[in-house]
Design a protein around this nucleic acid. Sequence first.
DNA 1: CCGGACGCCTGTCGGC
DNA 2: TGCCGACAGGCGTCCG
Length: 274
Amino acid sequence: MPELPEVESVRRGIAPLVTGRRVVGVTARREDLRWPLPVAEWERELVGTRFAAPGRRGKYLLLFAEKGVLILHLGMSGTLRVLPSATPPGTHDHLDFLLEGEEVLRLRDPRRFGAALWWREEPARHPLLAELGPEPLEEGFSPAYLYGATRGRRTPIKVRLMDSHCVVGVGNIYATEALFAARIHPATPAGALSRAGCTALVRAVRAILTAAIQQGGTTLRDFQRIDGAPGYFRQELRVYGRAGQPCTVCGTLIQVMRLGQRSCYICPLCQSIV
DNA sequence: CCGGACGCCTGTCGGC
DNA sequence: TGCCGACAGGCGTCCG
C-alpha cells in the first residue's frame, strides 16, 4: 500500500500529535505482524518516555524516543491514526501506543505485512535500513548515480526502480507513473538506459513523488491519512489502474503487463525511449 | 553476485 | 446466491 508519499504524509500528520508527547502504555492485540512485536522492550524502554519529532527513511517511519527508536513499516495495508483513547478497536487494530492526554496512536494492518520494531542505535545501523539506496528527493539520487546503479543490469528498469537497494520509497504505483512520465518502456533492461534516459527518469520520479506528497498520497482502497482522510493523487494517475482507457497524451489504449510479478501499465505508443 | 519466484495474510472482485 | 481463482500500494528469503 503505502509508498514514500503516503508514509511522508503520515509522518507529517503525526508530527504535531506525537512530538514531545509522553507514552503512557502499550497494548498489543496481536503480536504476529511481519515480525513479532517487542512488547516487553517497549514496556521497559518506551513507556514513560517522550517521543521526539518523527523521521522517515524510505518507507520506514522513525519515531524517536529517549532510549531508542520505534521503527514502523506499514506493509501493504497499514494505517496509523491518532484517536481518543476510548475509541473501540476494530478487528485489525493490532497495536496501540497510549499517549498522555487520553489519546492513542493506533496501528491497523489487515494483512499484517507491516512491522513495528525497537532499535537502540542509529536507525542507519539497523539491518533492514543499512543497505538502503538513496532517498529519491535528495541529491544522492542523481542521474549519474542512477546511471551507475543500472550498469550491467539486465533486469527491467521498473523492477530496478522498485528495488530499495537502488532507490528507496518507489513502489508499484509511482514506478509505473514515473516511467510513463519519462516515456520509458518499463521492460527496458536497466543497463540499456542512456544517460539521457537516466536524467529523464530521475526528474520524473522526483516530480511524481513531490506532486503526490502535495496531494497527501494516493488512496486506491484503504490508505488513510492520520485524520482518516484519503490521499488525492489518485486523480492524477495517468496509467496506473487505467487498462483499456485512452492515454491522456495520445489516446492509445493503456495496456497491462506483468513485470516481476507485479502489474504494470503502459502506453505502448508513448513509452519507447531508452 | 544476479535474477526470478515464493511466501507471508486478509479482503475484494469478477466470472461462472 | 455461492464458490473459486486472481489480484492487491511490500519485501525478505531462497534457489539456480
